[in-house]
């Protein structure tokens, strides 16, 4: 019997900045390489979907305007969404998707936007953006490479995705980047994140398989080009410090 996982991609029509679609491409390909069937469900309006069908959740980033439309829509399923994250569904939330999990988001001009209030953290946006290539160090995933571009400064006491080695991170102050809560990862890293960081991709797929009761050993196929693409940036940014 064929083993299927379903990736729920929220608002691909609105939240699709900076190549975030590459994360879905990476999840799909790497799951297929280990013999799984993959179905990508594009969620454009939350009321039409049955979230209990989801095995992996993905939300990308968008402009403030599109983010607002998306958040309003997701309120329809706020409780189901919270329950899934608490239950350990693997999820990846980029930029705006990450910010809107918190309890408050204040835009650069001081307006407070409504957020999903799933986790206890806040974000304040400023006009000057934190932009550039970034490298993190994480115990679980090793070096993580990406590109950040955000006006928001996020402050929380949860476990971060990693520690900033080069770049700004959550708020350019406390040295943390992103969040890792149960099996949910929130981050400001575009680039996109997953293709150059296959350990994170495989982790999300592993967790999806665990929850489904599939024993599908990860096929850690040749990751040479993934590693070389990451190395280009690691060499460039870290050789400066030598």
């Amino acid at each position: 019997m064929s083993k299927t996982i379903k990736i729920f991609h929220f608002f691909p029509d609105k939240l699709n900045l900076y190549g975030d679609i590459g994360n879905v491409t990476a999840l799909k390909k790497r799951a297929e390489w280990r013999g799984l069937n993959v179905e990508v469900v594009n969620v454009t309006a939350s009321e039409k979907v049955d979230l209990s069908e989801a095995d992996i959740l993905f939300i990308g980033g968008g402009s403030d305007r599109e983010q607002k439309i998306a958040t309003l829509d997701i309120f329809n399923v706020q409780e189901e969404f919270r329950a899934l994250i608490e239950d350990g569904i693997p999820a990846l939330m980029i930029c705006g998707g990450y910010q809107f999990l918190g309890h408050s988001y204040v835009t650069a001009d001081g307006t407070e936007l409504e957020t999903l209030n799933i986790l206890d953290f806040r974000t304040e946006s400023k006009v000057d953006r934190l932009t550039g290539n970034i490298i993190l160090e994480s115990e679980q995933f090793g070096k993580i490479v990406g590109f950040e571009n955000h006006g928001g400064r996020t402050y929380h006491n949860y476990e971060p995705l990693g520690t900033v080695v080069s770049g700004y991170g959550n708020n350019a102050e406390d040295g943390g980047e992103g969040i890792h809560y149960k099996n949910m990862i929130g981050t400001y890293l575009h680039g996109p994140l997953l293709p150059k960081n296959p350990k994170i991709t495989d982790y999300l797929i592993d967790k999806a398989c665990e929850r489904k009761g599939y024993s599908v050993p990860p096929v850690y196929e040749n990751n040479e080009i993934e590693e070389r693409a990451a190395e280009v940036m690691i060499d460039r940014l870290l050789s400066k410090n030598k």
């Binding site: 590459g22 491409t25 990476a26 390909k29 293709p195 080009i225 993934e226 693409a229 280009v232």
Partner: peptide
């Protein structure tokens, strides 16, 4: 300068 990034994209294509 980002040749490898293109090659990575092509692998996933």
């Amino acid at each position: 300068s980002r040749a490898e990034e293109l090659a990575l994209r092509l692998k996933y294509a």
